[in-house]
């Protein structure tokens, strides 16, 4: 099948690079158009109905997210590109959406587009992820969901339900009260900043803990946290003081 793609970027050089990389690595993709502004992008996408949109977040007349909002509902797959937008990156992380950083690294590019193509070919939907993304972007600070993508499936979990996350090199395992654990191929560090707003605390080099599910702090044996499901989590001695402070504020 031929995949129709559009490239939205306000930097002509970036447009060129993205097109070049697309045609170099993905000859099956047909680039049907390019746009540099929100207005033109919306028109372009409406007329061309692409399967894939390479979308820069910072455009000259607005944000890439505006385009998505104007086109809702839509069925195309988006790969986001950003230069330096901490907020957008956080939103992508919540929704486990692929994003590329400028200047684009070829390997990252191949991976991200490859995954997108697989998505399109399998006719999978990214709607739940986009929903989470929109919640974050619309400043709904009470957004409660996190998208966890594993090799087999995509989980949309409620952040409050997470008990703790355990790091294993570049993998992270999410633990819940009763539900089975989820292993994600991202480092714990990726989630630390993200979940800090939701009462999560880095109790240990290998553990990120949801303090809302802590039942006890045991100071013996160097200290450990006892979760509501009796699970015990070690505490780094360096974190003891901040942990006590955090718990007192709860």
């Amino acid at each position: 099948m031929i995949i129709k793609a559009v490239v939205i970027d306000d930097e002509p050089g970036m447009q060129a690079i993205n097109c070049r990389l697309l045609s170099d690595y993905f000859p099956e993709i047909n680039i049907v158009g390019k746009a540099e502004s929100v207005e033109n992008a919306v028109t372009l996408i409406k007329t061309q109905t692409p399967d894939l949109v390479l979308l820069d977040i910072e455009l000259e007349d607005g944000s890439g997210f505006e385009i998505l909002q104007k086109l809702q509902p839509y069925s195309f797959k988006v790969v986001f590109i950003t230069g330096f937008d901490a907020f957008a990156i956080q939103a992508f992380k919540y929704s486990a959406l692929d994003y590329l950083l400028k200047p684009v690294n070829q390997n990252d590019f191949k991976q991200a587009i490859g995954r997108a193509v697989a998505f399109i070919e399998n006719n999978e939907s990214t709607n739940p992820q986009l929903e989470v993304l929109m919640q974050v972007i619309n400043q709904q600070m009470h957004h409660k969901k996190l998208v966890l993508k594993t090799s087999e499936s995509m989980h949309i979990v409620e952040i409050d339900k997470i008990y703790f996350c355990k790091s294993d090199n570049s993998y992270t395992t999410f633990y819940f009260e009763n539900e089975p654990k989820i292993l994600v191929s991202k480092s714990l560090k990726e989630y630390e900043n993200l979940l800090a707003h939701h009462g999560f605390f880095r109790a240990h080099q290998s553990y990120l803990v949801n303090l809302n599910h802590v039942s006890k702090v045991d100071k013996s044996d160097g200290g450990f946290l006892v979760m509501n499901n009796k699970h015990e989590i070690p505490i780094s001695s360096r974190q003891m003081k901040s942990l006590i402070n955090m718990l007192e504020q709860l």
Binding site: R202, H204, Q205, S236
Partner: peptide, 8 residues
Amino acid sequence: ENLETEII
């Protein structure tokens, strides 16, 4: 390898 790099 035991250095708590992400904690410190």
